[in-house]
Design a protein around this nucleic acid. Sequence first.
DNA 1: GTCAATTGTTTGTCCGGACAAACACCCGCC
DNA 2: GGCGGGTGTTTGTCCGGACAAACAATTGAC
Lengths: 254, 254
Amino acid sequence: MAKPLADPTVDLGLSVDRSSPVPLYFQLSQQLEAAIERGALTPGSLLGNEIELAGRLGLSRPTVRQAIQSLVDKGLLVRRRGVGTQVVHSQVKRPLELSSLYDDLEAAGQRPETRVVANTLVPAPAEAAAALGVAEGEEVHRVERLRLAHGEPVAYLCNHLPTGLLALDDERLSATGLYRLMRAAGITLHSARQSVGARAATAVEAERLGEEAGAPLLTMQRTTYDDTGRPVEFGSHTYRASRYSFEFQLLVRS
Amino acid sequence: MAKPLADPTVDLGLSVDRSSPVPLYFQLSQQLEAAIERGALTPGSLLGNEIELAGRLGLSRPTVRQAIQSLVDKGLLVRRRGVGTQVVHSQVKRPLELSSLYDDLEAAGQRPETRVVANTLVPAPAEAAAALGVAEGEEVHRVERLRLAHGEPVAYLCNHLPTGLLALDDERLSATGLYRLMRAAGITLHSARQSVGARAATAVEAERLGEEAGAPLLTMQRTTYDDTGRPVEFGSHTYRASRYSFEFQLLVRS
DNA sequence: GTCAATTGTTTGTCCGGACAAACACCCGCC
DNA sequence: GGCGGGTGTTTGTCCGGACAAACAATTGAC
């Protein structure tokens, strides 16, 4: 009979605005996420059952469930039948996004810079053609960039893109990341297929990145798709292993 | 007015079994996924609207929506208001799972083998203690293994695990992967935090893997959490870059 | 004291309906 | 011919309810 929490609605300042165009379930999930983020909901604590929560907020149970489910999908909450919904007790950050090197560096406080080495139209090489789903030799954009942080080279990025998708001028390429340009052009990025490996740097690669020949490089090849499943970008990147590593969080989908 | 598909229900052999304990939405989503997998639903093709589909199957719209939504989450389908639900036209495999090296090798037809190099209790080193959330110096399991494919070394795996979770005997460790053992012990793996990088092999590392000193190695550090957010494993792995690379698919969470 | 059955709580699944918002398409106007 | 508005289709959101399944805790029997 004794409830572990007095009234979470009050403590957490949960409330919804029915006049807002933001969906109710989304308002709720954001508030819950914020509460978890700032520690108002401590790891392991119960959330109170769905019926009560719905009643207190003046929402229906399906709406509350939708809000909770989205947080479960993000890995912030765990539900157990007969027990309730608990906050996961781990230092989960973000469940993994399609990371942009530029944004990552910027978020880390490293001042990212981009030097455009090449920006031309070329006949598609076999590998790029296969990834982009165009005929070999068909014209595609080719962009080669050197990415720096604090004035030091971090990565050499070579990308191929289908024509007609995007206006690519050196100025904009220098100012920001490719993904931001694509999003700004109305392309909704959706998924990507990646392959991450390592190899020793060739003399040319080493010189570009300021390493010794034979130094270990982290390599990534990535094909990115928009929300219709159309390939929009194929990238071959090499990173200085001494200056960069990939960090990400995986969720098991059940 | 003209429908692109005559009656998908018939063509795809969709049907649900109400006497089965398997949830209806899950039955439907599995059948749809199978139809996409085997090409019965071609990329770009419409799925027919939700109301009709529900009517034909004798299900309610929410149930059909739940089935479709799960496939949208997996990146197999795209929904557009006023248009309908389409099959994504790309060669999407699986959206990325918490990959097990053993399972990956086995699925690729490489015959994986494991040699247990060490399997002891040790005081937790600082890094492992921090990852597992235990005090430094507290006793933890330490397992070192060499993973081979076709008799050739592929990776050197060093893992730390909390005590009391799992019975770790050399025999079982040799026969299968660590993740399978954990699942078999009733641990539900949920998420993992990974860091992938590269570095040159030290003399010791090179010797273990049959490489030259200085050869590029792919490194991974991973902390795995169960469904309650409790850390259950911390691994430091080194892979022969010449023989292995990580392949995975990322989804952008909207 | 220990084990098994019962009971209560909570989430899981499913239904039927209603209205809103976004998009594609067609038609009429200019 | 081009453009704008109207119309219809489809998904998005939300409601209220009902029953089933899983789990924990208590109760009862041995």
